[in-house]
């Protein structure tokens, strides 16, 4: 465990909490993609299946439970909460998530560490996490005006990925047999997807203006 890894996990948790807080406090989920949230829940569930029999550390187990619980809560708010569900931007959130799920599943069947059910599900979750933000980015692009909390949510998520890359570099340099190229490549793709967003986020921040994405 190193400082980059811990920072990454905390940033990830913070991003989810910012989103939950926004929904809870404003009773609105405007600008949030339900598709992305559902994909993240699928990522967590398929990756953390081993929660019950593979105990690695209390740290890992607590985070796994918290990630599954908090993303379920977000989905519950968006689909079931009487006030919040009315603010859901259904007409703009039209990304077909099968376009992401099917290729990731096929890729996981072909490129994996070992051909077994749990290994393939785990690998699927790595690929799916890399692209799960796409419906959210498309929604932001369509609605253009991004409120501060939604902007902060996506920014913190991107930052979390950047810190994972620093963690991999650190581990590669300090641990003798550390290698996991499937995870690295997926992580690079995932972080790359945020670069464009980062640019506009930082521009808006520097000029202390509201974040607006170009069409």
């Amino acid at each position: 465990m190193n400082i980059f890894r811990v920072s990454a996990d905390i940033l990830h948790l913070l991003s989810i909490l910012v989103l939950l807080l926004k929904i809870h406090a404003t009773k609105s989920c405007a600008g949030i993609s339900l598709k992305t949230q559902e994909l993240y829940l699928a990522v967590f569930v398929t990756r953390y299946l081993d929660l019950f029999w593979n105990f690695h550390s209390l740290y890992n187990s607590v985070f796994k439970v918290v990630y599954i619980a908090t993303s379920s809560m977000i989905i519950w708010y968006m689909k079931r909460h009487r006030g919040v569900k009315q603010t859901y931007d259904k007409d703009h959130d039209t990304f077909r998530y099968l376009f992401l799920i099917v290729p990731c599943a096929v890729l996981a069947l072909i490129v994996n560490g070992r051909f077994s059910l749990f290994e393939i599900l785990w690998t699927f979750s790595i690929y799916l996490e890399a692209v799960a933000i796409l419906p959210q980015l498309v929604l932001l692009q369509r609605t253009k005006n991004v409120d501060n909390l939604t902007g902060n949510y996506v920014f913190l998520l991107g930052l979390y990925r950047a810190f994972y890359i620093l963690n991999w570099i650190y581990r590669y340099a300090t641990e003798p047999h550390y290698s996991a190229w499937i995870v690295w490549l997926s992580g690079l793709v995932q972080t790359g997807l945020y670069l464009d967003f980062f640019y506009y986020y930082l521009q808006a921040w520097k000029q202390s203006k509201k974040l607006q994405l170009p069409s």
């Binding site: 490129v111 994996n112 994972y164 641990e175 290698s179 996991a180 995870v183």
Partner: peptide
């Protein structure tokens, strides 16, 4: 391996 080392990450 291509993944094994990262199994302790989240």
């Amino acid at each position: 391996g291509p993944v094994e080392a990262a199994k302790d990450e989240l």
